[in-house]
Design a protein around this nucleic acid. Sequence first.
DNA 1: ATTCATCAAGTCATCTGATGACTTATGAAT
DNA 2: ATTCATAAGTCATCAGATGACTTGATGAAT
Lengths: 225, 225
Amino acid sequence: MQPATRTNLTDSATSSLRAEIVSGRWGVGERIPNEAALTDLLSVSRGTVREAVRVLVSQGLLDTRQGSGTYVRSTVDASAALDRVKRTGLRDQWEARAALDLEAARLAAMRHTPADLETMRQLLAERGTVAGGGSDAFIRRDLAFHKSVVAASGNKAMMELYDFFTAAITETIHATIDGDLPEPDHQAHAAIVDAIAASNPERAVAAVRAFMAPVLAQLERLLSQ
Amino acid sequence: MQPATRTNLTDSATSSLRAEIVSGRWGVGERIPNEAALTDLLSVSRGTVREAVRVLVSQGLLDTRQGSGTYVRSTVDASAALDRVKRTGLRDQWEARAALDLEAARLAAMRHTPADLETMRQLLAERGTVAGGGSDAFIRRDLAFHKSVVAASGNKAMMELYDFFTAAITETIHATIDGDLPEPDHQAHAAIVDAIAASNPERAVAAVRAFMAPVLAQLERLLSQ
DNA sequence: ATTCATCAAGTCATCTGATGACTTATGAAT
DNA sequence: ATTCATAAGTCATCAGATGACTTGATGAAT
């Protein structure tokens, strides 16, 4: 049965305010109506208005200044975008992260520092020691290696995104798949580091793509069942 | 000078609660103390407690159930990832979006439908008509074209991210730069469509990269000033 | 004329008390 | 043992009040 719409006032107030912002009716830098006015506009109490505003402040859309008012800081709703990304399929998420892997490897080949290289080599070595801790530990070490490649790109935006996708993909895999994904072999990973160390962007991209292909193929196979 | 530390109670309450959660002292699934208890623990009023809790609910860390209590939903704050992306530099954001452009073009070359192709060609033609509406309108049409390429990749996660980056980059540019970025010529864009139409992934990637290079170079120049 | 202190109005920050809605456990009735 | 009504506990929401802060206006001192 369709569950009776059970939404709380704060959420609907938050949505209303968010709509005014992202639609541009309240422009960036503008001051929005004060709490008393919002109480009237939204037909909720001041406490509810404050909770709604506080949420949008925490998401970076609004900015309150005591004594002055509440101002629109940004129209880019990161939280909402993120929710929508989470609802996309596993293949889409994987491909998006692969896009980051590819370009990060290319940038890393051009920009890496000696320290970056040492970190990557150390993590690659640790990753090889299959001994400790079972599958979970292996996956964790594998991710640490890949993230070190992204870190070597020197691009903070890509690092944040990579973290996000890693978390989202892990969550989705646990929820949707019980089959195993192939574990790329040590050779494929070493090729990435070699290409980066040689400052060869094209080879770095090729190495990442080569290592991605079998995983993506297996993913397609599992999802098509 | 170092501005005098001016923190509000809600923020410090939010931090305290978040610390309990991420440290694991309040485990996932556990019920946290009720509002009255938190009022005592944090030495703030119920209203402040409610605002703090509401923020953590909006970030996915807590989950309130009326009549039952407030429970820990997750200990990882992935929802803040994109917020942090917003605070990275323009170059990083641009490169991250370029990573999407590149891979999207490659996927589009492999997966595009005839309808995708027609849309891209139409938007490309409209983009060419410099006539209407000045610089803003041109940028809007340019973005519409690029987004149609991402759409042709059939990857919804990449589409959402592309929207996010587009908005974030626009905001950042308005805030930090007044110089102009070079407008890639029509020829460069047509090359992308041609490569996709020819179902040639390598050429599609090359075409996007060729078109990105001058913009990125100008960006570096502007930012290094 | 400029600068500075003072003041008043507007706004958010916080607290307090009260009422309603919902969930859950308890215990009686069957 | 099951069902059902009841009560206690909890969050949701409202209303009123006070404090803190910002901003612009006013006027005195320079």
